[in-house]
Amino acid sequence: MGLMDQVELPQPVKYVFNWGRKYSLWCFNFGLACCAIEFIAASTSRHDFIRHGVIPFAHGPRQADLLVVSGTLTDKMAPSVKRLYEEMPEPKYVISFGSCANCGGPYWDSYSVTKGVDQIIPVDVYVPGCPPRPEALLDGIIALQDRIQGESLKDRIAGRRLDPITLGADAPLAIEGATGGASGGPT
């Protein structure tokens, strides 16, 4: 990325740059279960996240900025998710959509379900719910866009991430590594 990861952009440039980035999120949907239906509902005319600048169904991970993991992630599927995430170019963002993706959800005791997508890839926004309504995804997207607007691209490209946002949680959880704990699954 050349200079981008070494030099902090001047504030006005950064503002314009981030403003452009946050309204052009090419979205790669990892639809794994019923949450994917809510994701699709959010993309269609009624909820229409395209008006927020989210462009669904990127042609592949290499063209995507945003990965939405919606649904139950199994151990068998986990390597594929990790691999596709790694194929995405920086700066890239991850929304964990639904209880299963957050922490395993109702399958918390299953022999085959990964206990949250954050076990394998870093997550930016957790959207709780089982499944969350499309509005919740819109909330998550807006939270992510707020973050992108204030972000330092230098830090992002250098791999320094801020703490994830958990929708609906009043304050970030203090427990380390338990960031998905506020989601809807039994705790």
């Binding site: 005791d109 022999y111 039994p186």
Partner: peptide
């Protein structure tokens, strides 16, 4: 077959 999650944390309900 033992569910390891259940060993660590009993069924909550």
């Amino acid at each position: 077959f033992h569910l390891t999650s259940r060993v660590a944390k009993p069924w909550p309900g």
